[in-house]
Write a protein that binds this DNA or RNA. Structure first.
Lengths: 140, 140
DNA sequence: CTACATCCTCCAGCGGCTAGAGGAGCAAGC
DNA sequence: GCTTGCTCCTCTAGCCGCTGGAGGATGTAG
């Protein structure tokens, strides 16, 4: 269990090597101790932290939010209201993003569906981009 | 109609002033002529181009894709197959993104729904992030 | 003639990595 | 011992698509 190299840490956590170093640099991961050859030696706790970070990043949490979540995790007797709020804010973000992507998809679908595969001069794709009035939505 | 200042161009096109200069710098917008005081003087065609760019950016097209689309627009007798392909690729992107955001939303919803508003120690939000096995999805 | 708005150029910074240069250390095979 | 090849180190620069600020020139109104 001891003497986890950066390569192993990367493999086990799913975070790439330069990214691990980057997380250390920005203070998201505590600086691990070094062995005789100045190489990083990671602990199990570092792996857990890296996995936490990776998962949170996959869910789209920003590094600052993750920093707060990690701080919370380190003080287990505090109220989890803050963690809850961060997750809710993220959920709201995601919902907003889904809504705008769905609208966007509709617009792109009209574009490609009405393409007559002729010349650029009568291309709906170009036309719609050029003239926003031809959009099916007017709120952007 | 003549003598459109950068401020007017920004207002009319919806592209911010520094962004207009940036687009000129990266060659997305032709360098406009200058007046006596070295100020940019835009034409109607520049406004159309800027609007085109803004709309395409809003739809999530990358600058390189927009460059190609603009080139196509400038040569109207070419086949629009390329424009069609770019739009289709973008549509596929958007669909993929929607799928992953919907999955993500489900995961976030489980998180916040099962929050008991107690202490961090039994916080589901933190827990799910820490242990990916608790995820409802296993494909990330 | 002053005040203020607008413009100019140049350069640095954002987030979140990612890649490359240039070098050190370590284990295994000869 | 010596070489090969892998891993590791630090440091720096680059990616995208802007955005903001410094410091200065010009234009316009009162």
């Amino acid at each position: 269990m001891a003497k986890i190299s950066i390569k192993e840490a990367a493999h086990d956590s799913g975070v790439k090597i330069p990214t691990i170093r980057y997380y250390e640099q920005i203070g998201l991961l505590p600086s691990p101790r070094r062995d005789g050859g100045n190489r990083r030696v990671f602990e199990e706790s570092d792996l857990r932290r890296l996995t936490f970070i990776r998962h949170a990043r996959e869910l789209g949490f920003e590094v600052d939010a993750i920093r707060t979540l990690l701080d919370l995790q380190d003080t287990p007797d505090r109220s989890c209201a803050e963690a809850d709020a961060i997750a809710r804010a993220r959920l709201a973000d995601v919902n907003q993003k889904i809504r705008s992507l769905v609208a966007l998809r509709a617009e792109l679908e009209v574009m490609v569906d009405s393409c007559t595969h002729g010349h650029v001069s009568e291309c709906r794709v170009i036309e719609v981009l050029a003239d926003h009035g031809k959009c099916i939505f007017d709120r952007h």
